[in-house]
């Protein structure tokens, strides 16, 4: 069987994600109103915001899992929901997603999970795909002895690492992380932060990361976008946001769990 392979996407824009005038509402509940956001190439962007501020809705809109009420989302210069299926698949091949709970396929082993996108979108043989999967496991810091375990046998940190390896299986250039360190112990979370930082550096990734973890924000994010009042109120490096006068941002960085060091 000849599998359909996706030709590489020709990039028409420097910035991987450009969102302009995004509106999202469910009935009378307005989640996003006139939201603008640009993610620059090679940047690690952290998204913060209170519960219910629409972080997940934003992520789902960018991923095309949920059609926005109105507004434009461009990925690599291509408008979402426009163009052929092939174009959509090209964009999908360039993006990787790490869902909050991992979303590993429970019928497949760890190696097979990482091989899944390869078996779908490349013509590699099973052996070749497995070799590449092992490489990705090693890059994600997984012990290779875990290759033949089922997802239900993995610890929380290993599930995250497997999901990261799967997201990077096709050498995605744009990585979406939904609370990557939630549910990990501080040591595991720190190790995962370092891993993302290293991989982003060595693979030249652009990372869009939703997180609540202040340590992650300080450790790896180049810039932080704050989602409040239904749009991005401020975007900038941590040092700039610490000085912000917006009440929510001030509370976030100066509150009891904030870590502005005097």
């Amino acid at each position: 069987m000849k599998r359909q392979v996706v030709p590489p996407l020709k990039e028409e824009c420097e910035d991987p994600i450009v969102i302009t005038g995004l509106n999202n509402s469910f009935g009378s509940n307005v989640v996003h109103e006139n939201l603008d956001l640009t993610v620059k190439r090679g940047e690690i962007l952290g998204i913060v915001g209170g519960s219910g501020s629409g972080k997940t809705v934003l992520l789902r809109s960018i991923l095309g899992l949920q059609k926005p009420t109105s507004g434009d989302i461009h990925l690599f210069g291509h408008r979402l929901y426009e163009g052929s299926d092939e174009k959509t698949r090209q964009i999908q091949a360039k993006t990787g997603v790490l869902f909050q709970s991992g979303a590993l396929f429970s019928t497949l082993t760890v190696a097979e999970n990482i091989m899944a996108p390869m078996m779908e979108f490349t013509r590699l043989s099973r052996r070749e795909a497995r070799a590449v999967a092992l490489l990705k496991m090693s890059m994600a810091g997984l012990p290779l002895t875990a290759a033949d375990l089922a997802p239900s046998e993995l610890s929380g940190g290993m599930i995250k690492r497997t999901a990261l390896a799967r997201a990077l299986a096709l050498d995605a250039q744009l990585l979406f992380l939904d609370e990557p360190t939630a549910g990990l112990d501080p040591i595991g979370a720190a190790a995962f932060d370092t891993l993302i930082r290293e991989l982003a550096g060595s693979l030249d990734l652009t990372v869009f990361m939703i997180t609540h973890d202040l340590d992650s924000l300080y450790a790896i994010c180049d810039e932080i976008a704050v989602l409040a009042d239904r749009h991005v109120v401020e975007k900038g490096p941590v040092s700039q946001l610490e000085k912000s006068s917006h009440p929510w941002i001030h509370q976030y960085f100066h509150g009891p769990r904030g870590r502005v060091k005097k």
Partner: peptide, 12 residues
């Protein structure tokens, strides 16, 4: 050529 994952079958 392109040494990327979709073009590598059998090269090794």
């Amino acid at each position: 050529g392109q040494w990327i994952i979709t073009r590598l079958e059998g090269i090794v």
